[in-house]
Amino acid sequence: MGFEVDVRHTSGSVDGQPPSTPTSTYIQLAGWTKVVLFIRALLSKPASALGLIIFVVFLFLALFGPFLAPYGVNEQIAADAGQPPSAKHWFGTDNLGRDVFSRVVLGAREILSLAGFGTAIAVLFGTTIGLASGYIGGWFDEILMRIFDGLLAMPLLLLALLLLGTLGPSKSSVLLVIIIVYTPIVSRVVRSVVLSVRQRGFIEAARLRGENLPYLLFREILPSVLPALAVEAALRFSYAIFLVASLGFLGVGVQPPSPDWGLMVREARNNVNQMPWAMYYPAAAIAVIVIGVNLLADGIKRVLLESK
């Protein structure tokens, strides 16, 4: 035990409950109808609507940031160093004369891409391993799961720091750490759903038809796993943002002069009394996106797993 009941979804599903078997009607519907219904369901509750809006805004910043930012990410205007927010510099400037607003805007791409790619790759690996492990079972399953138990028997931040300590702090290390830490978690979730559908008739039928293993895993079993997987991916993504920001703040993640928000907070700390804006705007950006993505993940969970 230990890892199932978990604070702030640092591992496994958020409530420590095993993912329920999918009962959602969304599986049967196809194409755009599904997407529209899904978004409508998210917008129907204020909390998840707010989360979705926040996420879309930040996604927009991440995609089009370079067109929106008035200054370059490391453009130093020595004459303007340490200025409070004004019409020229909306969020003020830091001690090196860099425009805080531009850096916050450009940092959105930094954090969303790192957390997004890390989560996506981990979900890909985790799904493949979880499907295979759950379906094949036996020794293969046993050995993999014991290795994962070992990895997850410590708090995730501890594991992340341990890995970063050996890999050395850099952007690619952070990406690698997210993948190593999340792959076991995702594959456990996928595996538990596979175990619950493995004995169903349609899978037996496909096997008797003589379908090969990849077909069985990805065409027959995967659709049943998708709702639980989507929920888990959303939770992972929200915690990945949290992790990237925290590692940046600790100085063991992304390195200067990157506009990573956690790193910006770290760099601005020493001058917080003279220019608080250089620290509080990036900190606020972290707070808003983390809460937004949390609300969104909560909403996705409500729509996919709890709707009948």
Binding site: R8, A47, F242, S246, F249, G262, V265, V272, A283
Partner: peptide, 22 residues
């Protein structure tokens, strides 16, 4: 509790420093 639980500790900590220390 939903709002606070999502915030990274360093953000909360820095806000508390601003209020109670500075």
């Amino acid at each position: 509790s939903l709002a606070v639980v999502g915030l990274p500790e360093f953000v909360t900590g820095l806000v508390l420093i601003q209020i109670f220390a500075f």
